[in-house]
Amino acid sequence: MYAIEVERLTKIYGRGVTAVAAISDATFQIKPGELVAILGPSGSGKTTLLTAIGLINEPTHGKVVIDGATVADEGWLPGLNLKRLRREKIGFIFQAHNLIPFLTALENVMIALEINQLTRREAKGRAIELLTSLNLGHRLNNYPTALSGGEAQRVSIARALANKPKVILADEPTAALDTENGKNAMILLKKLAVENHSAILVVTHDHRMVEGFDRIFEVRDGKIISEKRNGVAK
């Protein structure tokens, strides 16, 4: 079973003569444990694709299946609890880490767990475990402003992994990091994809950051124009 299945996914903004297809006819599947990149310049439609898979932006056409459950088929399926699905199945990593400024590193991870109905004690245990595994055990009680860019992004990754999601979506996760920290973050994501058996879909415009990815889709003007597997064009 695939973690992500996308079939002829299309998103059109506007109507009539002003209609613009931000993404059209995207079709691919991602297996659990796979690290996949969507590479493309600004405005190519990669974030639209990410938000459609992330249950944020309703697709105009096509089908999206997350962890075996169809969520969109010519629009969202009726009666779908998108928030709950996002909470349980998807983890997000953001460009600017998006940590909540008034929560410590530990609390930033705990909040994702508490929202998913874990008790405070369970959430704290899991959050400490995660942050320690990401070498942040000494930063548990620091606020985001006291963390370096790399540390903040690792807390963000820990938050994304907190609920053991089947899918992790990362939007330009290295944009706010220097090259070294960016590469380290990508290495970490690859390791986590394998360890947690999660499908990780990374959107980026930076070619240097996608070394070692299992697959790379290149997007231009809303269309997937190529797919490389382990650096080899398909």
Partner: peptide
């Protein structure tokens, strides 16, 4: 941004 992040991670 905090509220948007909370919504994105599934906060009720």
């Amino acid at each position: 941004r905090v509220i948007a992040t909370l919504k994105l991670i599934g906060a009720q």
